[in-house]
Amino acid sequence: MKYPDIFTIEDERFTRLILPNTQLEHLWSGGRWCEGPVYIPAGRYLLFSDIPNDRMLRFDETDQRVSVFRQPARFSNGNTLDREGRLISCEHHSRSVTRTEHDGSLTVLADRFEGKRFNSPNDVVVKSDGSIWFTDPSYGIDSDYEGGLRDAEMDCHVYRLGVDGTLTRVADDFDKPNGLAFSPDEQWLYIADTGATHHVDGPHHIRRFRVQDDHTLKDGEIFAECDYGLFDGFRIDTHGNLWSSSGGGVHCYAPDATLLGRIHVPEAIANVTFGGQQRNRLFICATTSLYAIYLNVRGCSVLTRNNP
């Protein structure tokens, strides 16, 4: 069977995840660095960040229009939903993780650890027990372009915010922790390290950790190395396959770390998410644009993952 040229098949298993009659859709252009997509199923729309323009945008799936959802947006980056359908956001300028309540008001969930300000929370995921896990690299304080030039008060780490408000550091051996996602059974947490942005020989990989019953992380072996650009944000489908951004398209990895295939996109990609009524539409935030493609697989979310 012939597949569109946008696909590169590295492993035969990839053919079961893609569709032979689909195309990459260009939905919108006009951003500077598009990031943090999250799909809102109740409204059939996608929210995403345009960090340098300090705004969050809204793509309406029913009429294909893009409008401004929030501006200023405190240079927001990663977004996700909690179990109550509320928006959880990482904000560079406020150096905090916030929650948008159902009435539209903002609640600051965390902005410091042990009395020190975060660098610039980057990406975030919610576990089925309601806890919030997020990364804190320095990209938002490295310049005024994606936040505000400021001094770091601590190194770059990964954190967990429990439903009781307890904040713990779960990983402290990263250079620039970035995107993160849980496996469908939540036994594994994948975390990208994009330290190569600051060091020629810096990390450009995704690590995989085993999640312990006490919420700590174990092992942390390298799961995949990026061969073009950097892994940034990524998502997991219901079979445990990982779909990651990179400098040369979307890379899909099996749970055994085999590269299954690639989706070619004409811009460097920052992040992806699954959406649509069947969660089988992959939305792709590239440098200036928003793309989408239908797949033969559904994305995993906090509402579909198994309870631990």
Rank of each mutant, 00 (worst) to 15 (best):
F14K: 01
I18T: 02
T22Q: 15
L27V: 14
S29C: 07
G30K: 02
C34T: 13
C34P: 00
P37D: 07
V38I: 11
G43N: 12
L46R: 07
L46K: 04
F48H: 02
S49M: 02
I51E: 10
P52N: 15
P52R: 14
R55V: 07
L57K: 06
F59Q: 05
T62R: 10
V66T: 07
R74M: 12
R74D: 13
S76Q: 12
N79I: 07
L81G: 00
R86K: 02
V97R: 11
V97A: 08
R117H: 07
D123T: 14
V126M: 06
W133D: 00
P137R: 14
S138N: 12
G140P: 13
I141Y: 13
D151M: 05
E153C: 09
R160V: 12
L161W: 08
L161M: 13
G162L: 04
G162Q: 11
G162C: 10
V163I: 12
G165C: 03
A171Y: 00
F174A: 05
D175Y: 04
D175M: 04
N178D: 12
L180V: 10
A181V: 09
F182S: 00
Q187W: 00
Q187M: 03
W188Y: 11
D201F: 05
R207P: 00
R207M: 00
F209I: 03
H215W: 04
H215P: 01
F223I: 05
D237W: 08
L242M: 13
G247H: 06
V250G: 05
H251V: 03
Y253V: 11
D256I: 03
V265R: 05
R279N: 07
N280C: 09
R281W: 10
F283A: 00
C285F: 02
C285A: 06
T287Y: 01
T304I: 02
N307C: 09
N307R: 08
